[in-house]
Amino acid sequence: MADPEIKSYEPHHESQSAAVTESRPVRAVLMAVAFAFLGIFLVLPLIVVFNEALAKGVGAYTEALASPDTRSAIRLTLLVAAISVPLNIVFGISAAWAIAKFEFKGKAFLTTLIDLPFSVSPVISGLVYVLLFGAQGLLGAWLKAHGIAILFAVPGIVLATVFVTFPFVARELIPLMQEQGNGDEEAALSLGANGWQTFWYVTLPNVKWGLLYGVLLCNARAMGEFGAVSVVSGHIRGLTNTMPLHVEILYNEYNAVGAFAVASLLAGLALVTLVLKTLLEMRYGAEIAATRGH
């Protein structure tokens, strides 16, 4: 093919691999654009959170965090995460064991179903529980007759949180355990270990960093979930307000310091999550599922 643009190859002198990279000015421009974009979209919002939280000084900041409503929101968020994360750990390990260690019909379909919550709007994740447990819901009348409160109470918040954080642990463990194969387990079993011992002393140590990675992401989402929890919570101050919901209430009351003070705790959680996640990737990259991202 005669292409008029093909000219004789001219050697460049900027670097050894000039032929397969951009010229220095182009590189500089591309990097500047990328950094400006990241600065505006990622760094500035983060700075704003801490700047607004401390806008009226450290005293106002600590005072905002000490208010009883804020304290109860923090307690509720910790409680919800403490219930929903372990539930999803047990599910994640169990699902990964079934999917990674065995070959069975419908496996691909099951794996797809596990990812389903990621493609559902958080608001819809909350809505489905309202339709189930709400006053006009399928089980609403029965629950009311038996005096069981799920909606606008802690169980509803836990359920909505479990729904949105459902796939995190499983989708981290499944590819990791598939990659590791069954050899270690078969060896342990042939040496006389029972199933539980095999899991506890062979499989779990093999996947511990991957598991921690999944738990980290699961926990960050569990503590930060807003949409789904907002729909089922009923926003009762001091009772069913999680930290993200409390941020909304304070913000809508024009209490900027209060809202950003609580937000700064959540932003701190996000930063700690990112640091731990990066450390895990750097140190145990090989022992974490090859799939990156979410």
Partner: peptide, 19 residues
């Protein structure tokens, strides 16, 4: 910079919203 890219995954949406 690489780690920062994941910030939107880790930062609660309400916090991002008010910021």
């Amino acid at each position: 910079v690489d780690a920062m890219v994941d910030l939107p995954f880790a930062l609660p949406t309400a916090v991002a919203g008010i910021a």
